[in-house]
Each structure stands twice: as structure tokens, then as C-alpha cells.
């Protein structure tokens, strides 16, 4: 599974942020994962258990927020939630729609423990 590759990049980014902010350690990592991102949150959490070892994020909690697909119809401009394998417009039935949410794979927030002043 490619979730471990994604996690390695995640750890690289988190380590860079921790360095920038002179953090002692990372407390929490918040991700936003669209259901059309091709990444499974539960597998990502398993991979994170491995990827975080020996890093500043070793004791961090990983939280994933799921983002469901949402479409905008290019014909009738209707916006609606959609299922992952049915992105048709529920108003006019058309297949000419744009995906406006649901393929995010985003590092949204990191909570850092910094040394006391």
C-alpha cells in the first residue's frame, strides 16, 4: 500500500515545521483526506505508527478528517454532495460535473510543544 509513502512525506513536512518553530515535539497532526484521494485513513494511521518512530513526531496523535465528494454541475450550476462512484448531477442527471471537494490530501494543522520562555 502507498499509505507508507504518503506517511514518509508527511513526517518530512512535519519535521520541517517543528524545526521552523523550534518545537520540542509534535503533539497532534491533523489531516484532511477526501474520499477520492486514493488514501485510506485507517491504513494511513497504521503506517504512521511506523513512520513516526525516531522522529520528533514519535508521540504525536494523528487525526484524519474525512472530506466527502461534492460536485458542481457545469450545465445547470447545481451543487450537491455525491457518492465516490457517482458524480452525476442529481438535479439534471448530467455527467458534465466538476469535483469541488473530495480529493484533498492535506496536512491541515500541526500542534507543537515548544520550550517554555
Amino acid at each position: 500500500m502507498h499509505e507508507l509513502s504518503v506517511c514518509m512525506e508527511l513526517i518530512d513536512q512535519v519535521e520541517a515545521i517543528a524545526r521552523t518553530h523550534n518545537a520540542e515535539r509534535v503533539e497532534t497532526i491533523v489531516l484532511q483526506i477526501g474520499s477520492l484521494a486514493g488514501v485510506e485513513p485507517s491504513l494511513l494511521e497504521n503506517a504512521f505508527e511506523i513512520a513516526r518512530l525516531g522522529t520528533v513526531a514519535e508521540h504525536a496523535e494523528l487525526r484524519t478528517e474525512r472530506v466527502e465528494p461534492r460536485i458542481r454541475c457545469q450545465v445547470c450550476s447545481h451543487e450537491a454532495d455525491a457518492g465516490p462512484s457517482d458524480l452525476r448531477c442529481p438535479a439534471c442527471g448530467g455527467t458534465d460535473t466538476a469535483l469541488i471537494a473530495g480529493e484533498e490530501m492535506i496536512l491541515a494543522r500541526v500542534e507543537l510543544l515548544q520550550p517554555a520562555d
Binding site: 518553530h21 489531516l31 490530501m105 496536512l107 491541515a108 494543522r109 510543544l113 515548544q114
Partner: peptide, 10 residues
Amino acid sequence: VTAVSVLNKL
């Protein structure tokens, strides 16, 4: 504890 908003692609 400081929270850093990143909104970076993974």
C-alpha cells in the same frame, strides 16, 4: 502548545 496551520499537500 502552538498549533500551526499548514494546509499543505501531503
